[in-house]
């Protein structure tokens, strides 16, 4: 049976899926990247291989996420695609009539608008990390809670505390103040969830026409408190897919499948030694940081140079 591999290598986590010819997920894995994308991908690929039957043949590979280029070289991928496009493609393969994708990840957030199955507009946060998972993480820590507890606790609140949503710094000082004057913990937690949503809608969502069906994904979509805040503010039902965290790699796999280029994927990358070496070019004061990637001591590829001279030196 033919199958297709998609890998999404983010700064925080690495996700992988194998899909069949009908875009059905037949294997999936989610691991922490821990600053070592190559090791994380080896782990993901190993786990995926264990989940599939021996007759399954992976015929094409797609990569996405911030390490897509590096891992694209490592996996000899047919498709190396930005995360905005892959998320749209992946989500559409699950919810074909989706018109709005809200996404909040660990360090970034985006909104994708689709009409009739094509992306018509998108935005990605550009300046700050307010209203993303890392903000929730730091505030949970401040309140002595585990990040997983936040959502359920927020649901218990009947009177969410009003917390400034504009900026992480203001939100945090607001939150400290509200806690000290006696607001209940669940109200504060619910307030944080609302602040994340308001921040998102005022930043990436600004000026965008949000139409249902709405899909919410990314790590923060696991937080039911944020989901409820979105539903209350937007006045629409929000759909959260159980595979919401896999949409990027799913989209990459779909695109690899659609690429029409097939080559049997060799799962045997565990034993292959991939090493990257960085070097600062000194030929001019741009000082480009050039990255070389080696497979078993042989240069596979290099990038980061602004001009041709960089590679020859």
């Amino acid at each position: 049976m033919k199958a297709y591999l998609g890998v999404d290598i983010g700064s925080i986590s690495t996700k992988g899926v194998i899909i069949d010819g009908d875009n059905r997920i037949i294997a999936n894995e989610y691991l922490w990247t821990e600053g070592n994308p190559i090791a994380a991908v080896k782990g993901v690929v190993e786990s995926l291989q264990k989940q599939i039957a021996p007759e399954v043949q992976v015929m094409a590979v797609g990569t996405t996420g911030s390490a897509r280029k590096l891992i694209g070289v490592v996996l000899n991928a047919q498709i190396v695609k930005n995360e905005i496009t892959t998320h749209a493609i992946g989500t559409m393969s699950r919810v074909p009539d989706v018109r709005t994708i809200l996404e909040i990840g660990g360090q970034d957030s985006k909104i994708i608008l689709l009409r009739n199955g094509i992306v018509t507009d998108y935005a990605m946060n550009t300046i700050c990390a307010a209203g993303t998972g890392s903000f929730l993480m730091s505030q949970a820590k401040r309140l002595g809670l585990a990040i997983e507890e936040l959502g359920e606790m927020a649901l218990q609140s009947e009177n969410p505390t009003r917390i400034a949503a504009r900026c992480t710094v203001f939100a945090e000082s607001d939150l400290v103040h509200k806690a000290q004057i006696g607001h209940k913990k669940e109200d504060i937690v619910a307030g944080i969830c609302t602040a994340v949503v308001n921040n998102y809608l005022n930043n990436v969502g600004k000026g965008k026409r949000i139409l249902a069906p709405i899909v919410f994904q990314g790590g923060v979509s696991k937080n039911v408190g944020v989901v409820r805040a979105f539903e209350q503010i937007l006045g629409h039902e929000i759909y959260v897919d159980e595979f919401g965290h896999l949409m990027g790699c799913l989209g990459a796999a779909v695109l690899a499948k659609n690429s029409g280029v097939e080559q049997l994927f060799d799962f045997n990358i565990q034993e292959v030694d991939f090493v990257t070496k960085g070097r600062e070019c000194e030929l001019c004061s741009n000082n480009c940081e050039i990255i070389y990637i080696y497979r078993n001591n042989e240069v596979l590829d290099a990038w980061g140079n602004r001009c041709e001279r960089g590679l020859s030196a």
């Binding site: 695609k81 930005n82 905005i84 496009t85 749209a88 493609i89 199955g117 998108y122 990605m124």
Partner: peptide, 20 residues
């Protein structure tokens, strides 16, 4: 570069009238 690539993909999809 990521945003530009996504922008291009979007324009291409719009032009073709279907997903990539």
């Amino acid at each position: 570069k990521t945003r530009l690539e996504a922008f291009y993909d979007m324009l291409e999809m719009k032009k073709r009238g279907r997903a990539l």
